[in-house]
Amino acid sequence: MSGGANVPVAEQAGNPRAGEHGALSCGKPLSFSRETRAELDRLLTRYPTKQAALLPALWLAQREWGWISREAVDHVASLLDLSSAFVWGVVTFYTMYNRAPVGKHLIQVCTSISCHLNGAEEVFHECKKRLGGLETGETSKDGKYTVIEVECLAQCDKAPAVMVNDDDYAVITKDNLDAFLKGLG
């Protein structure tokens, strides 16, 4: 299935998960800020069904809270008249909804074919190593970095391609990796 690139380490290790539908709990009920709620209302006018606003609503939730917790699922579900289980099923299908908190810099290294041909796997491993030996999907102790492997970013001419949060980075090699990481701050 598609979901998987950023399955939290806790989940991968089979740790007990909170929440009846499998989502991790953030420990408190959540609801959108007034501004976000207004944004969702505007979005709802763009579609003939409420359900169609689910992916956009999950994006709003991730922007507001950084990741999709059980409580975020419940809130989005109630706003769109969907069941929480259904919403969770959608969340887990897509790789970009974080199912656990991630570091300040979510480093996404492409290892698909054109990047592979340009040494992407080595960049990916080196990146984790130089950040203190992180596991894939693990966040550094200072909360700054999470490194994951992603599939083709449609930047194959800039291989090896990397994304950090929403930004694209071109030609990240073993040699410029240190400067790249330092530049992130």
């Binding site: 598609s2 690139a5 069904t49 359900q51 169609a52 606003a53 689910l54 992916l55 956009p56 999950l58 994006w59 769109l80 969907l82 099923g89 959608v90 299908f93 897509y94 790789t95 970009m96 909804y97 992603v150 599939e151 083709c152």
Partner: peptide, 24 residues
């Protein structure tokens, strides 16, 4: 309308399902 990370959503009927707010 933004997708959320799933290659298969480029297939036109998966794209349609995804736009409807479902798994692709």
């Amino acid at each position: 309308h933004r997708g959320a990370g799933a290659y298969i959503c480029g297939e036109e009927t998966a794209l349609i399902e995804s736009l409807e707010g479902k798994r692709g």
